[in-house]
């Protein structure tokens, strides 16, 4: 399967292991990634709060560039991109007059946003809806047996439900649970699954932001999770990069590895943790590595890093 691939900003900035692990996993899923390289940041909601038309036009261009690759299906690897782009797309699709206004800005570059042309799906949605979990199961080389995984979705990919097309037919707010099970792991239910990581207010209200991250990490630890998995690199920043500060904020000594979605898939498909960039995390995913070495029965746990 070929998709127009939008990696986003943070996966090429402060979480390079996300982009890297996606590229490592794609061939194993027979997924060809045609990268949209000229496109700009989705605005993460911040540009939209500054100037809605600006955000809508930037994303209209991203969709137009995606269409230029010749593919109709665009894939992102970031909950925030999914949410921010869906929000702009909802407005662009609502009115021909508004679309014309936005397209008049894109015209100079010979681009135009066309309603209904490009479908944008997060890697998670693509796994379940396009590749299919039954199909994925057949590719699993190292089932996550005994690994207790807590899903953490990130706000932008679960709310608002109508905009994101979450309904009985597409229970997209259950996909992570389904995926973890399909990969052979155990789903950990805890209070923070659908809550906010706190990242968007880290510069405005640091205390509340860190408290959010810390609380979810501690809740997951109390529910006996070995690790969390996130489809959003911004959540990863607050949950992993800020974890020492976040857990200190709530006065708990927690060490909770946080995996990017492609890393979890990659592990089950037999890839080496290091090849998935798991050595680049602030919180060493020792529990996950111990698990994987126990399964493979090779090198000693945590050896080398």
């Amino acid at each position: 399967m070929k998709v127009a691939y939008w990696p986003g900003c943070v996966s090429r900035g402060f979480t390079p292991e996300l982009h890297g692990s996606m590229q490592a996993v794609a061939p194993l899923l027979d997924l060809e990634l045609v990268e949209i390289d000229r496109a700009s940041c989705c605005g993460a909601g911040v540009i939209a709060e500054h100037n809605q038309e600006l955000a809508d036009t930037l994303n209209a261009r991203t969709f137009a560039l995606a269409a230029e690759t010749g593919e109709r299906l665009m894939m992102n690897i970031c909950s925030t991109c999914q949410g921010a782009q869906s929000e702009c797309q909802e407005r662009l699709d609502a009115s021909a007059e508004y679309r014309d206004e936005v397209n008049s800005t894109l015209e100079a570059e010979g681009l135009a946003y066309e309603k209904g042309l490009v479908t944008n799906k997060n890697f998670l949605w693509l796994l379940v809806e396009e590749i299919g979990l039954e199909n994925l199961k057949k590719k699993v080389k190292r089932p996550l047996t005994g690994l207790k995984v807590g899903p953490f979705y990130g706000c932008y990919i679960v709310r608002p439900t109508d905009r994101l097309g979450i309904d009985e037919e597409h229970p997209r707010d259950q996909y992570m649970q389904d995926l973890i099970e399909a990969l052979g792991g155990t789903v950990i239910d805890y209070a923070g699954i659908y809550k906010c990581c706190g990242f968007p207010i880290i510069t405005m209200n640091k205390k509340a932001s860190l408290k959010m991250a810390g609380t979810h990490l501690a809740d997951a630890a109390d529910a006996d999770a070995d690790c969390l998995v996130v489809p959003c690199p911004l959540c990863h920043l607050n949950l992993d990069l800020q974890q020492p500060l976040a857990t200190a904020e709530i006065g708990r000594d927690v060490s909770m590895p946080v995996l990017h979605l492609p890393q979890l898939v990659g592990l089950a498909l037999g890839l080496d943790p290091k090849a998935l960039g798991m050595n680049k995390h602030v919180v060493k995913p020792t529990s996950v590595i111990d698990w994987s070495t126990a399964v493979v029965g090779s090198a000693p746990a945590g050896g080398g890093w």
């Binding site: 000229r38 100037n51 809605q52 038309e53 600006l54 036009t57 508004y98 206004e101 570059e109």
Partner: peptide
Amino acid sequence: EGTKRIFETIEAKEQRLEY
């Protein structure tokens, strides 16, 4: 250039457009 042009065009507008 494309990104820059979008910023220039929209920031030059006198009124913010909100749908």
